[in-house]
């Protein structure tokens, strides 16, 4: 009898729309709570480095002198631990994953109003600063 059961199931699914989605033609619908990627509101960041210390995978690097906040996208496991510990609530775990790549993506964010100082620092060769903002 079970042969009939699976037969019925297969026949029915022949006439139903596919259970899978034609990704990426049809983009994935994110749920409200989906933990996709970490976003930072860099203007609020005080570069205290707590997020970097608490991150279980050491995906975050904070440079207080250069005022940069760096995240290794492939190292981050979306646990939201950094979001919970940030004293300024400037981190957010938002829906939507970072796009796949063949290299390990590192995103660096620099606090904007501090840029002149950073440039000065660069001139005096005191610190080396990675590319400001955006994917490398």
């Amino acid at each position: 009898m079970a042969n009939l059961k699976i037969g019925g199931m297969i026949l029915r699914s022949l006439f139903k729309k596919p259970a899978t989605q034609m990704y990426p033609v049809i983009p994935k619908e994110w749920k409200e709570r989906t933990r996709g990627r970490i976003e930072i509101d860099i203007d609020d960041c005080i570069f205290c480095g707590i997020c970097a210390r608490k991150c279980p995978t050491d995906a975050i690097t904070v440079n207080r002198t250069a005022k940069t906040w760096t995240i290794e996208r492939m190292g981050c496991v979306q646990c939201s631990c950094c979001v919970d510990v940030c004293p300024k609530s400037c981190l957010n775990n938002v829906a939507g994953y970072t796009s796949p790549d063949v290299v390990k993506i590192v995103d660096t964010f620099t606090k904007a109003e501090e840029t002149p100082q950073v440039e000065e620092a660069l001139k005096s060769d005191a610190v080396s600063v990675p590319e400001a903002t955006g994917a490398e």
Partner: peptide, 27 residues
């Protein structure tokens, strides 16, 4: 049979994503 079993499993993964934010690892 394999495909149909995993089709049904998707319901559970959707419930997980809605309630926890992750499909497999929930944190």
């Amino acid at each position: 049979l394999f495909m149909h079993t995993w089709r049904l499993r998707e319901t559970i993964l959707d419930i997980f994503e809605e309630t926890t934010g992750g499909r497999i690892i929930f944190s």
